[in-house]
Design a protein around this nucleic acid. Structure first.
Lengths: 237, 237
DNA sequence: TTGTAGGCGTTATCAC
DNA sequence: GTGATAACGCCTACAA
């Protein structure tokens, strides 16, 4: 049973947040230490350019005031985004959530954060997702489209292809798109499965293959690979 | 077999991206239509405040140039963030990925995007995650801490509690913290399970309960609830 | 070692 | 209906 518990203090903190109190900026700190903003900025980013004493005071005040740099301002000024966009049709699919885990882990190593958009398998949301991510000027987009079918040619395709944002397709391909991709070679997988089976037992007569949807290209490719090894024409289901 | 395929065009697009060509801004559009930025801004945000003819031209040029509003600039100016931060110890845990899915879906409805941080169960990363999210001035943080133990009192706790960012704990609690939480009532769950079993068969003599780690509080609470219903003292394992 | 000036892209406020 | 001005918070010149 899921229990939602609201503490009195929560409600308090809520109303505080509603009052839109501004957050601490470097100029708040600057005033406190009788310096200009630039010195504070340097203390935070290039500490060695600041006199030890000044530095110490600044850092102290910063901590005291719970200063947290505004990433929007920084990204705007520096014209850089430390966000990597990930678009997937279903986070709750274990395959994708494992991928996301791996992506997330690697991104973190390099100082990037993941912005995750689940499209619920809706092309429309996928398109919006692309725009959202471009709005954040993401460093790159890892895209697992809603469909793998050749006729799926999303409207954002051209914009994305002409743009400067690196895109990598994951698991699914957009036919004819210029993006790099990380995909499963279905034919080869079937082929390898066949080889393995032959190694285990060279006298296979009948074979049961459990697949996904019967006529998906994925299924067909895998079966084709399998048949390529097993030669004859085992009855596959 | 995973296949990584790099197309020639990808390499090209990569090098383009490296050259940091600036993206289109409203002032680019403004120049093209001999207007000022404000008018363009209005055309995009309050279309009805702009003459139909002007509006049309602006929108056309915007599309032509593949204009995408810079969210950093907008958020900075408006002092608002449309990001919701989600901190979890393991995205690849099906329980959490389902949660994330649900959160994501709901967030989208209201125009918010999810920023996902997986802490890999490391308190240190959790702390960094909080800072990262605060840097983005997120609208709120949904936090599933690395630990549920009472002695886990992360360093960011005070900052977060005093701050103005709404926080909701998910699945795990930080003992003594003022945040609202969505958690499982383990005792009650055990209790209900017991009731259900009794309904099915009132003559239970021996019961096998599959639990998680034997002495975790979770396990113990559930068992306690169970025993409360089943009265006597069934041998539980 | 510290400061001045200006601008990143956008929008709020007040004019015309 | 449109514009001039300034500001959001930060940082990159270029001084002093």
């Amino acid at each position: 049973m899921l229990a939602l518990r609201l503490t009195p203090k929560f409600q308090a903190s809520q109303s505080v947040s509603m009052s839109k109190q501004k957050s601490v900026t470097i100029s708040d700190i600057a005033k406190r230490v009788n310096m200009t903003t630039i010195t504070v900025s340097r203390a935070l980013n290039n500490p060695h350019q600041v006199k030890a004493e000044t530095l110490a005071r600044i850092l102290e005040v910063a901590r005291e005031l719970d200063y947290v740099p505004n990433t929007f301002a920084r990204s705007l000024k520096r014209d850089e985004s430390l966000i990597i966009g990930v678009i997937t049709a279903s986070v709750d699919n274990p395959f994708y959530s494992e991928m996301i885990k791996a992506i997330s882990r690697e991104a973190k190593k390099h100082g990037y954060t993941i912005m995750l958009v689940d499209t619920d398998k809706l092309p429309e949301l996928e398109s919006k997702a692309v725009d959202t991510l471009l709005g954040y000027r993401v460093a790159g987009i890892i895209l697992s489209p809603v469909s793998d079918e050749p006729q799926y040619q999303p409207d954002y395709l051209e914009r994305l292809a002409n743009g400067k944002t690196p895109v990598v397709l994951l698991d699914r391909t957009i036919h004819g798109s210029p993006f790099s991709r990380v995909v499963l070679d279905n034919y080869h997988s079937g082929y390898k499965a066949g080889q393995y089976l032959l190694q285990q037992n060279s006298g296979i007569k009948r074979l049961l293959v459990l697949t996904g949807p019967r006529h998906s290209r994925i299924t067909e490719e895998r079966l084709k690979g399998l048949r390529a090894v097993l030669g004859g024409n085992p009855r596959c289901k």
